[in-house]
């Protein structure tokens, strides 16, 4: 991520307080060696990948899986491992991350 100028003590809010959700700005894509790839056609919309993802990286809109948030996915593979779709119609497969 880009190095922003860090605030000095006079600019920082007092009391070790943060606004909510600022970690969303922190990109962890570089942690990945593999990435999950989603097939919309094979997806049965069971939402299991969404609940088991440690990184809140399964994008859900109106109760439907719509893909992955690759800024925050660390490539652990839990989603793919837990995906209940059949071997010949996998909805999530892990692929090597290109360097």
């Amino acid at each position: 991520m880009s190095e922003e100028k860090k605030p000095g003590w006079k600019e920082l809010p007092e009391g070790d307080v943060l606004e909510a959700g600022t970690a969303a700005k922190f990109n962890v894509a570089g942690w990945r060696s593999e990435k999950p790839v989603w097939s919309k056609d094979n997806c049965i919309q069971c939402m299991i990948c969404w609940i088991v993802c440690p990184d809140s990286s399964v994008k859900v809109v109106d109760g439907k899986m719509t893909g992955f948030d690759y800024d925050h996915c660390k490539g652990c593979g839990i989603c793919s491992h837990e995906c209940p779709t059949k071997a010949d119609k996998r909805a999530i497969v892990m692929e090597q991350e290109k360097k």
């Binding site: 959700g21 970690a23 969303a24 700005k25 922190f26 990109n27 962890v28 942690w31 990945r32 919309q45 069971c46 939402m47 299991i48 969404w50 609940i51 440690p54 990184d55 809140s56 990286s57 859900v60 109106d62 109760g63 948030d69 800024d71 925050h72 996915c73 660390k74 490539g75 652990c76 593979g77 839990i78």
Partner: peptide, 23 residues
């Protein structure tokens, strides 16, 4: 799960837990 998925996620991504963490 579908009903839960429309609620606001209490956690964002971008935290520093290990890949594959359980908590």
């Amino acid at each position: 799960l579908k009903e839960l998925s429309v609620r606001q996620d209490p956690l964002t991504g971008g935290h520093r837990a290990c890949a594959g963490c359980g908590f």
